[in-house]
């Protein structure tokens, strides 16, 4: 009956709101300390006592994964314009080599619930000391309870590589700045092997253009790639560049300048027009 439904909803909400009583710095701590095994939103607290809410994946490979960021392309035609928080919102500018600098600062933005509709970054990005990373590619605008099922690609690392780089991306990108002209193509950061949770090496390969497929090897996540024109990109998701330096066609995030004009969070994914299966796209 409608009354029962209301009661069920109430009890459900009551159970969810109990989560605000947990004290933990990561989803792993919540899973370990409170034995929570349900995916969803939880409150976390930073070392300085700042409380924030984020999504916890409590199921993949033993669970305890904390969502710390999302990179969302609001307009593939934009060139370092509004919404390009993971490169630059200040135009393609040689004088702003770091762009917005969000890969290596303590700025935060967006909400966990809105992570597939806009860029997201929470204090966990710099506060959590982690060992491994997991990445989900979720079609834009999907609601949180369907992220897992809707994802076109999901994978994680399992070799604890973050221990070597300070425990999170904030520290890793201090070692490998995402900055225009910081080095050349041969100066890329680490490429870490991945374990697939949805998809495989072949589906990863097919997500990118014909020409990029000749440049990379799938089955890795790579950090701070640099292209022929000395533009820096933050992450090559699912791939490792091995033969060529046109990483602007398959790596995301970046500094503030791309020669000539490919600046953006998904820099030149649209080079030969989108989804046509030709050239670089």
């Amino acid at each position: 009956t409608p009354q029962n439904l209301t009661r069920t909803n109430f009890e459900h909400l009551e159970r969810l709101s109990n989560r605000s009583r947990y004290v933990a710095r990561s989803c792993k701590e919540i899973r370990d300390r409170y034995n929570e095994q349900e995916d969803g939103l939880y409150y976390l607290t930073t070392a300085n006592g700042m409380v924030y809410q984020t999504f916890c994946d409590m199921t993949t490979a033993g669970g305890g994964w904390t969502l710390v960021a999302s990179v969302h392309e609001n307009s593939i035609n934009g060139r370092c314009t509004v919404g390009d928080r993971w490169s630059s919102q200040q135009g393609n500018n040689l004088n702003l080599p770091d762009g917005d600098g969000n890969w290596s600062n303590r700025n935060t933005f967006g909400t966990a619930e809105g992570a597939t509709s806009d860029d997201f970054k929470n204090p966990g990005y710099y506060d959590i000391k982690a060992e491994d990373m997991s990445v989900w590619h979720v079609p834009n605008n999907f609601p949180l309870d369907h992220w897992n099922l809707a994802a076109i690609l999901r994978y994680h690392t399992n070799n604890r590589f973050l221990r070597l780089y300070g425990g999170n991306l904030f520290q890793l990108f201090k070692h490998y700045p995402v900055r225009y002209n910081i080095g050349s193509c041969s100066n890329r950061g680490p490429a870490v092997p991945i374990v697939y949770d949805h998809g495989d090496r072949e589906t990863t390969r097919m997500f990118y253009g014909l020409k990029p497929r000749k440049e990379f090897e799938p089955g890795f996540i790579t950090f701070r790639a640099i292209n022929n024109e000395r533009a820096a990109m933050a992450i090559c998701s699912g791939v490792k560049p091995i033969a060529g330096c046109n990483t602007e066609h398959y790596c995301i995030g970046g500094g503030g300048y791309f020669y000539p004009d490919q600046c953006g969070d998904f820099p030149s994914f649209d080079y030969d027009s989108l989804g046509m299966g030709q050239g670089w796209s």
């Binding site: 989803c27 982690a130 979720v138 995301i252 989804g275």
Partner: peptide, 15 residues
């Protein structure tokens, strides 16, 4: 890149 890839947000997790 494929339309699928470009029209998907990239969610980053730590553990």
């Amino acid at each position: 890149a494929s339309k699928e890839m470009t029209e998907a947000a990239v969610l980053l997790f730590y553990r």
